[in-house]
Design a binder for these strands. Structure first.
Lengths: 116, 116
DNA sequence: GAAATATTTAACAAATCACTTAAATATCTC
DNA sequence: GAGATATTTAAGTGATTTGTTAAATATTTC
């Protein structure tokens, strides 16, 4: 629980950058692919992309497999699932709380119409 | 879709900080509450908390309602839902891709029992 | 209207981030 | 082994982040 927090921070800050999100999107289209191909559409040098990949790898959002001089990158859904679970937990928590509050409001003023 | 990217960046970078996540957690326990009460367990000055609240507000993860000199803060599930949807999309995409790959592997090694 | 309270804004410093170019490392091919 | 290719690491820079203390802004209370 305690250490999970650092994991979450690394995942969310990895996802906070649009280039890194595009890399993940691109991976979902291309499947496993090498760094140069992955980097192709970005107007940015290769070292910059390399850095982004390192961040994604450290957040365990991607996996890297070496095949000779090529690095084959693939998506790792586990990492995203982890973040997704944190989010889902709070969304359902809050939604539950708000639904309950809605019920209370309805009981208190039953003539009130829906205002969502 | 294009402009959504900035929104996602602001949400994910808001969630990347452990203090801000704790603020959201605390809000889910306390419901709507004032800044000083929200800030209470954090070993950090009030201006620092105020900044964090600003970041959360700009990401539309919280809402602020003023009541005299007090600011009442509450969670806004919409923001989290937005991030949650982005994540869910890619998780299911990737999972789908991997399930398909799984099928291929099963067909290639038929001694493994297929399970539905 | 002066003092107390709730909160934010300003100004600043240290740390981190996202790039760049140049150099290094590892591998492949001849 | 020399040269080409794939990728990373190093070094540096400007922008952003996260905290601090001090001051400002509203609002309440007496």
């Amino acid at each position: 629980m305690v250490n999970n927090s650092r994991r979450l921070s690394s995942i969310f800050s990895a996802l906070a950058d649009p280039t890194r999100r595009k890399i993940l999107e691109r991976l979902s289209k291309l499947g496993q692919c090498r760094v140069t191909l992955l980097a192709q559409p970005f107007r940015m040098t290769l070292p910059a992309i390399s850095r982004h990949l390192k961040v994604l790898e450290e957040a365990r959002l991607i996996r890297r497999e070496k095949d000779g001089r090529e690095h084959l990158i693939s998506a790792n859904p586990e990492g995203l699932k982890h973040a997704g679970e944190w989010i889902t937990h709070y969304v359902t928590y809050w939604e539950g709380r708000f639904d309950a509050m809605d019920e209370i409001l309805k009981l208190q003023s039953p003539q009130r119409k829906k205002s969502s």
